[in-house]
Amino acid sequence: MSGPSFPQVRPGPTNSLGDVAGLRVGHAQRAGDGYLTGTTVVLAPPGGMVAGVDVRGAAPGTRETELLDPRNLIERVHAIVLSGGSAYGLSAACGVMDRLADGGVGFPAEGGVVPIVPAAVIYDLGRGGRFRATPDAAFGHAAYDAATSLQVDGPDVHAATSFQVDGPDGHAACGGFSGGLNGSVGAGTGAVAGGLAGGVGTASVVLPSGVTVAALAVVNAAGSVLDPGSGVLSGTRYGLPGEFDHLGEPSAEEVAVWRPAGVTSLNTTIGVVATDLTLTKAQCGKLAGVAHDGLARAIRPAHTMVDGDTIFAVSTCALPPPRPEPTLYGSRPVTTPAAGAPGDGAAPDGAYLHDLLAAGADAFSRAVAHAVLAATGRADAPAYLDAFPSALRRTP
């Protein structure tokens, strides 16, 4: 597998969105009794987070995205919700709003607070058997509770998993389960990806400057996640050293017989890319836009008339803003100026927006690959390694 687009980078401690310290992620899902769907929430650290969004698909289902326009009032958001259920699933954000408001978290207004919770949804209607078996506010409650470790198993209809931040060195640690961020969980419970099982995937990278960039993708694509000639997962081309070394090209025989039967006409891939570097709303919007490049490298075709592809970008603002780019574009300094040099904004050494954007795109590609690798196969959508078992060279 090819390495990253620039050297001297490494994954974060958990290779997940949780490596951006302060973020919390929770999943809630229901499978059975006509349901095969779920909700994922990304909670902001205290004080909220700066956010931007880029919508590229022609059939999006979104909420509160206009607030993220740099021309508009709101400067911080308090959570991002990703959900199944198509437009019905936007109701899950109401449950997250309930929990935030109960805790006094939100935009201050006369008489109380208004939590700012942008959201996006995938189309998974009917995949569990019932068309209207969709996430509602209770799913939002369960996902929030999972993210805050208040609830690991939701009452009767929800099975929630949690991911708790504040591990060693200020990074993330798993909250009582292994690999709970990746796979057919949360918003990715009923996802498909070009005929394969889809799901939720995450990835992170720590740049030489110490800045962390991470992505979470909910992969539910009409397009293929495979290289058409080799059957290799396209997103693995952007893996960090060792990340996908357990995989190889599947046999020609397996590639030749692959005929996806579960390709649907309404889909959508959504996600979040995050960093601890301080960004403006406009810079977050740019990061979200470049992350779509990573989506398009891992899924082909992307941004179609039947996809609602939407990516949010968030900044926790734990580190100072990026340095100005070099005066002569295309010519980078051989040595990094000392942190705090006059006029450079006192950012971490070598922290440039250009590098952050490139890392965000690669991280999203990797997250797409992890989503498909971790997904659970089912009758209408096999797991990648069920369809291409020879691709597994060794146990990861």
Rank of each mutant, 00 (worst) to 15 (best):
G34C: 06
D102W: 12
P108I: 14
H141I: 15
G85T: 12
G22A: 08
G377V: 12
N15K: 01
E66S: 14
L277F: 05
H141L: 15
V290Q: 01
L277G: 06
S265E: 03
G188W: 00
G201K: 01
W258C: 01
T161E: 11
R366T: 05
P11C: 11
P60I: 10
S234K: 14
A318K: 06
A147M: 06
I80E: 02
D362S: 13
S230D: 06
T268G: 04
T236Q: 01
G201Q: 01
D124A: 04
V200D: 15
T310E: 08
R378D: 14
V211W: 00
L279P: 03
A58W: 06
D245R: 04
E253M: 09
T37W: 10
L266R: 05
A387M: 13
H292N: 00
H171L: 12
S149F: 10
D136S: 09
G106E: 05
S5H: 13
P324Y: 09
V117S: 03
S2M: 11
G95L: 06
A381W: 09
D169Y: 01
Y384F: 14
T202W: 02
A146Q: 04
S184D: 12
A142R: 04
M49Q: 02
A217M: 04
L226W: 03
A109E: 13
L82K: 03
S209Y: 04
E243D: 03
G84T: 06
T39A: 08
L90W: 00
A296L: 08
M97C: 15
Y35L: 12
D33C: 14
G111D: 06
G89D: 04
D124S: 02
H292L: 02
P321L: 09
H370V: 01
A120Q: 03
D227W: 02
R259I: 11
W258N: 06
T310F: 03
D102T: 14
G262Y: 00
G95D: 11
D349A: 15
D276Y: 05
L233M: 12
G248N: 07
T264Y: 02
R323A: 14
R297G: 04
Q29E: 15
A87W: 08
V273F: 05
A203G: 07
I122L: 12
D355H: 13
T376Q: 14
G198Y: 06
R76Q: 08
R130N: 12
G32N: 13
L181R: 02
G154P: 07
P13Q: 12
G239T: 02
G195E: 07
R332P: 11
E325C: 10
S184A: 15
G377N: 09
D156K: 07
A347F: 10
P135M: 10
R332Q: 13
S83N: 05
S251A: 03
L226Q: 07
A391E: 08
A31G: 10
C317P: 09
G186D: 08
V20W: 07
A31Y: 00
V314S: 04
C284P: 02
L328H: 12
D344N: 09
V334I: 04
P208M: 01
T37L: 09
A347V: 12
A51Y: 07
T395Q: 14
E249N: 11
H292T: 00
C174E: 15
V55I: 15
P135N: 02
G285K: 08
D98F: 06
S178T: 15
A282N: 00
A288R: 03
D54A: 09
A369H: 04
V81K: 04
L353E: 13
A282Y: 09
D380Q: 13
A197W: 06
A92D: 04
M305E: 15
M97I: 15
A101G: 14
R130W: 13
V225D: 00
